[in-house]
Design a protein around this nucleic acid. Structure first.
Length: 591
DNA sequence: TATACTCCTG
DNA sequence: CAGGAGTATA
């Protein structure tokens, strides 16, 4: 008559092999369009303002706008010799559009060297420059014509526009470079070249001197909107054409995916044809699978259903040894590339390396009625936390999906220069010693692995120069982590015993339990990391093991903990690949 | 003997 | 969290 917590009763596809999970992740359809949309979604907003002529319905303007849009569209669609020319040839373009996308990304690191400031087009040296330039020129012409028309319209019609429309334009704040020139300096992430061009466009108009204030206002607003729209479009084009400015936010997502093709080319066959670009949404889940997936549900479900759970657990667990071999999909074959990626997350210098993660990490929907199954006193309900659990979000998913939206403001002035010395090719600084960020990272890793091998540690701390001393220090860290962990477990297990708990299955470590709080406080002090579900499951099992041992009086044996250690040592999960980044998590402090 | 683990202590 | 002692394993 166990109250069978629904939390545990979930999947009985329990024994899903890691491999299956990986494949599943890989199978995620990733339509080219969708992918691109997601990574470039930031440049779509202006369109909405463009297509929002709420107060001004001038046919002429509409027509002009249509023309401009047509041109822009044409530019977007036209092949991009600039980029294609400078691409490594090893890509097999099974999906042309995607291949191009990928090539563009790959060419990214090459943009590291800031271009010498010069006339527009300097940058696009090869063949593409003049072409783009022409297009831009046409655009400018169009703009000029447009403005003339507007001028006429303004002169004929006197009615001043409502003030609200002017305020609406502030929506451009997202694209600093589309604002007036005085605001521009504040740090748009346009390259020098782009800035130059935008400036050109913006300074085109010969402002009419003799206009009524109303007309002037109208004109001003129109001008803003038009220049904003045009320059935004130009920017969008240039971004695609010239480069994705290094350090741009989309880079994380893109570069992250750079990793995948590597392994994909080696191992994947079931992925199908078009598995390429930018499944920004899909990728994170993939990364998550090894972490939370395998153990998820399984380990907890089993014990509750069958008495012999330690055994079944062992079978389904994923030993930490060689996690790199576990899920080939997430394992880049080239460490260098991996490290290149690694640099990226750190560039969203927002103070928090990964942003605050939404609460519930479980990809498996937690029963809303979790309260009902709160099993035991030590696992107390915390309404505040519980309420946050209402919106379950896979943790890795949220983490990675969020990153692309980190404020772009942090881009250094001049997109191209921004990359100087910061990005991919900026070498991984090999450190002699361990610093606090290493410690923090190790603590977070503890959520996935309690018994990391020294090889694993070496793999996940690429910026650390390992020697005997460093290695044993880090191993000592984990030993200390375990110590605290087991002490807590024992403490709460004993409390449960003294509370009269009979059934170990009642003991769950949930996110609102005291035990969890203690652990989280220790390993994740800032609470800026979403503790993976697999950790909760392992913790629950540990607690149960301790409980059973204590309640069976085994603790009289001096080495009564050893069997527990042995069990727990087999419950390590794979650590998300992102942890291999030398700069993950990127802390506010950086050297 | 070297390495890694636990336990204890500061 | 680090250091040291004691122990286990290879």
């Amino acid at each position: 008559m166990d109250p069978n917590p629904s939390l545990l009763s979930s999947p009985s596809r329990a024994c899903a092999q890691p491999a299956e999970l990986c494949m599943e992740g890989r199978r995620n359809p990733s339509p080219c369009e969708q992918g691109r949309d997601s990574s470039f979604s930031w440049n779509q907003v202006p369109n909405s303002s463009l297509t929002d002529p709420d107060w001004f319905g001038d046919q002429q303007v509409q027509a002009k706008r249509a023309r401009v849009e047509t041109i822009i569209r044409g530019m977007c669609l036209s092949p991009n010799p600039l980029v294609l020319g400078s691409v490594r040839a090893r890509d097999s373009p099974s999906c042309p559009e995607k291949a191009r996308e990928r090539k563009r990304k790959q060419s990214l690191p090459m943009q590291q060297n800031p271009p010498k400031p010069g006339p527009a087009g300097t940058h696009g040296s090869k063949k593409g420059g003049p072409h783009v330039r022409e297009q831009l020129h046409m655009l400018k012409q169009q703009l000029r014509q447009l403005q003339e028309h507007i001028l006429q319209a303004a002169e004929s019609g006197n009615s001043a526009p409502g003030a609200h429309s002017a305020k609406q334009r502030n929506g451009y704040g997202r694209w600093p470079w589309t604002m007036d020139s005085d605001q521009q300096g504040s740090g748009g992430d346009l390259s020098g070249v782009e800035k130059h061009r935008v400036a050109e466009v913006e300074h085109q108009p010969e402002e009419p001197r003799s206009l009524s204030s109303g007309a002037r206002a109208l004109l001003e607003i129109l001008r803003k909107e038009l220049t904003g729209a045009v320059s935004q479009a130009v920017d969008a084009v240039l971004q695609k054409v010239l480069l994705d400015p290094p350090g741009h936010l989309t880079q994380l997502g893109q570069s992250f995916q750079e990793l995948v093709p590597e392994s994909r080319s080696e191992t994947s066959s079931e992925g199908g044809a078009c598995k390429d670009p930018l499944p920004l949404a899909a990728l994170p889940r993939r990364a998550q699978a090894p972490a939370g997936g395998p153990l998820g549900n399984v380990s907890l479900a089993k014990p509750l259903d069958s008495p012999g759970y330690p055994v079944s657990l062992r079978m389904i667990s994923t030993p930490c040894q060689g996690p790199t071999a576990k899920c080939p999909l997430t394992v880049p074959s080239h460490m260098q590339e991996n490290q290149m990626l690694s640099q990226l997350p750190g560039h969203g210098h927002t103070g928090h390396w990964s942003g605050r993660l939404p609460q519930d990490a479980s990809s498996q929907s937690h029963p809303p009625s979790e309260t009902a199954l709160r099993p035991w006193g030590a696992v107390k309900l915390r309404p505040s936390v519980l309420s946050q659990q209402q919106h379950p979000v896979p943790f890795t998913s949220t983490r990675l999906e969020k990153l692309p939206f980190l404020p772009s403001v942090k881009m250094e002035q001049g997109g191209l220069q921004a990359g100087t010395g910061v990005l991919p090719f900026a070498s991984v600084h090999i450190q002699e010693g361990l610093n606090p960020s290493h410690l923090k990272k190790a603590k977070l890793m503890f959520f996935f692995t309690r018994y990391p091998s020294s090889n694993l540690l070496k793999a996940y701390f690429p910026d650390v120069q390992f020697n005997r001393c460093i290695t044993s220090q880090m191993i000592k860290w984990f030993s200390n982590f375990r110590e605290f962990y087991y002490i807590q477990m024992e403490k709460f297990a004993r409390q449960a015993v003294s509370d009269g708990i009979k059934n170990p299955k009642m003991l769950l470590v949930l996110r609102d339990s005291e035990l969890f709080r203690a652990l989280n406080m220790h390993y994740n002090k800032g609470n800026d990391f979403e503790v993976p579900d697999c950790f909760l499951e392992v913790a629950s099992l540990t607690l149960q093991e301790f409980f059973r041992a204590v309640s069976a009086g085994k603790d009289s044996d001096p080495s009564w903990k050893k069997p527990i250690y042995k069990i727990i040592s087999k419950l390590d999960s794979d650590i998300p690949q992102i942890f291999k980044s030398s700069s993950y998590p990127q802390e506010p402090f950086r050297n």
